[in-house]
């Protein structure tokens, strides 16, 4: 790991990040003093109890929201003070999202849902088709391309969401409680899929409060009351053992 850090620049580099929300005259500090670096190919889990700021941190990493203070570099570019459209463009290019509730568009079939990020990148139709078909094959959803979300099981919906996150070949995949709406069998399958993707070189940042899935990641960042309180790095052999256990 140290070796990797010395050789590569971080995909995510956050320094002294603060986030506070204000409303009705009350200001709530959600995150403070966050320093975080995620390197290419890393599988990071952000862990912590409910309300500790995991999802807020993920939304800042994913540029769904902006930090109140601090600097943030994504793939070496400063993204701390971008406008909405600039953030959209970077999200589209650099980030793949997987949500707890899948967030598929009900009126679009599997193919169209996965194709959507490429449409916003103005990728030509022919190339879109090739890429979508390839990524659906990768997640084992080739047979369900014409299905609509309501015709799929929870696991299949989440596989579609994974395919959508992968289709633009992003710098990082952000997975926010990806197993939260799945039973344990389907949850395990999704975690295995993410593990497989990591094995193929994907950078993954997972948010979960389920300790069963923390160990899939090689690095765990523990949050409490909006602050990083500890960080564990798991050796890959140990990680594998824990997973089998």
């Amino acid at each position: 790991m140290k070796n990797k850090k010395q050789q590569l620049s971080p995909v995510i580099n956050m320094q002294n990040i603060q986030k506070h929300f204000s409303g009705n005259g009350v200001e709530t500090l959600a995150l403070s003093g966050i320093n975080l670096e995620i390197y290419p190919g890393e599988y990071t889990a952000i862990c912590g109890p409910s309300g500790c700021g995991k999802s807020t941190l993920l939304s800042l990493i994913g540029l769904l929201d902006g930090a109140s203070q601090g600097s943030y570099q994504l793939n070496g570019a400063d993204v701390s003070s971008l406008n909405l459209n600039q953030r959209s463009a970077i999200r589209n290019r650099e980030i793949g999202f997987i949500f707890q509730n899948f967030n598929l568009i009900g009126d679009l079939n599997v193919f169209k849902n996965v194709e959507l990020p490429l449409v916003y990148q103005s990728v030509p139709a022919k190339e879109r088709k090739e890429r979508v078909e390839a990524v659906l094959a990768r997640v084992g959803m080739s047979e369900r391309m014409a299905h609509f979300p309501t015709q799929l099981s929870g696991g299949q919906q989440q596989r579609t969401a994974v395919a959508r996150a992968l289709v633009t070949d992003p710098a990082i995949i952000l997975a926010d409680e990806p197993t939260g709406n799945l039973d344990s069998e389907q949850g395990n399958a999704i975690m295995s899929l993410l593990d497989k993707l990591h094995g193929e070189g994907a950078t993954i940042c997972l948010v979960t409060h389920d300790p069963r899935y923390n160990n899939y990641a090689e690095r765990q960042i523990n949050l409490l009351d909006g602050k990083i309180i500890s960080e564990n790095i798991t050796d890959s052999s140990v990680r594998l053992n824990k997973k089998s256990a």
């Binding site: 959507l116 916003y120 990148q121």
Partner: peptide, 16 residues
């Protein structure tokens, strides 16, 4: 709201 948010999250510019 959810559909529009997904589109925006996936990188659709607001004008799109």
């Amino acid at each position: 709201r959810q559909e529009i948010s997904v589109r925006l999250a996936l990188g659709a510019p607001r004008y799109r």
